[in-house]
């Protein structure tokens, strides 16, 4: 589904990603872990098309297409979804309006008719219930005045409505208490499917107790310095990142 090869990225002439290689197949969940400043968020941003990053080398191919050449909205319509670390507040635009506009943009892109208003409400209300959100959220401005947990749930709600193929969760677990984390994790787990892949960028091993990854990658100093199965996360929890980073220096 996604193939990243030797990807190097600069921000303000500073090298942030120094040759990332990653192969992600449909149905897989990849966790990307690493210390602060390792380039984790840069990787999510560059995949979703945020401006301010300069790709200096390498490629990212998504379903056979050059992902990096697409504007952000086309990536989104092609099925790439970024759940933001810090979801943006948009006063004056209601949640339900955004959800409908987003869904219709995808449908139009795929040559489908706009969603029927009643069908849409039924769809949204079903999803919102599963995420233990109040229906009132639909009519409030996007993320405005939401708590941290509510914002993250709102991201998962959007993901559930848009049904993307590649979901990138950027530190979705940061700042969540254990109850909110469980709700968010349940939401993500309910979206697992053989056609869908996930990239979970996280600082904490805790998330992986609730969403079981197939692969764990450790990102440090702009490179993936170690990859393994779920057991790698446990090892990191025990030893911290220090042993790997030291190892890299020695190598």
């Amino acid at each position: 589904m996604l193939s990243i090869k030797d990807l190097t990225v600069n921000v303000n002439d500073k090298k942030i990603l120094k040759g990332i290689n990653l192969e992600i197949k449909a149905g897989e969940i990849h966790a990307i872990m690493g210390p602060n400043g390792s380039g984790k968020s840069t990787l999510s941003h560059i995949l979703s098309g945020k401006s301010g990053y300069e790709v200096t080398g390498g490629s990212a191919t998504y379903q056979g297409k050059d992902l990096l050449a697409m504007p952000p909205e086309i990536r989104a319509r092609e099925g790439v979804f970024l759940a933001f670390q810090y979801p943006v507040e948009i006063p004056g635009v209601s949640n339900v309006y955004l959800l409908k506009a987003a869904l219709n943009a995808v449908r139009k892109y795929n040559g489908q008719d706009e969603v029927d208003a009643m069908d849409f409400l039924t769809l949204v209300k079903g999803k919102i219930k599963a995420l233990e959100m109040d229906e009132k959220f639909l009519y409030r401005a996007v993320n405005e005045g939401f708590s941290g947990g509510e914002k993250k749930r709102n991201e998962i709600l959007q993901m559930a409505i848009l049904e993307p193929k590649l979901c990138i969760l950027d530190e979705t677990d940061s700042g969540l208490d254990i109850d909110a984390l469980k709700v968010v994790a349940d939401g993500v787990n309910s979206l697992r499917s053989p056609d869908r892949a996930f990239i979970m960028v996280t600082h904490y091993q805790r998330l992986l107790d609730y969403i079981k990854p197939d692969f764990v990658h450790v990102l440090a100093h702009g490179q993936i310095i170690k990859s393994g199965g779920p057991e790698l996360a446990l090892e990191l929890e025990e030893k911290g990142y220090g042993w790997l980073e030291d190892g890299q220096v020695a190598a």
Binding site: E73, L82, F84, I90, P91, G92, A102, A105
Partner: peptide, 27 residues
């Protein structure tokens, strides 16, 4: 940041900008 957020939700840049402008005025 808001423009990018809307783009990441499938909305093209021009519509995103109009949407935000409308929201600002519509208050």
């Amino acid at each position: 940041k808001s423009v990018f957020y809307l783009q990441s939700r499938c909305i093209d840049e021009e519509t995103a900008r109009n949407m935000l402008t409308f929201a600002f005025a519509n208050e």
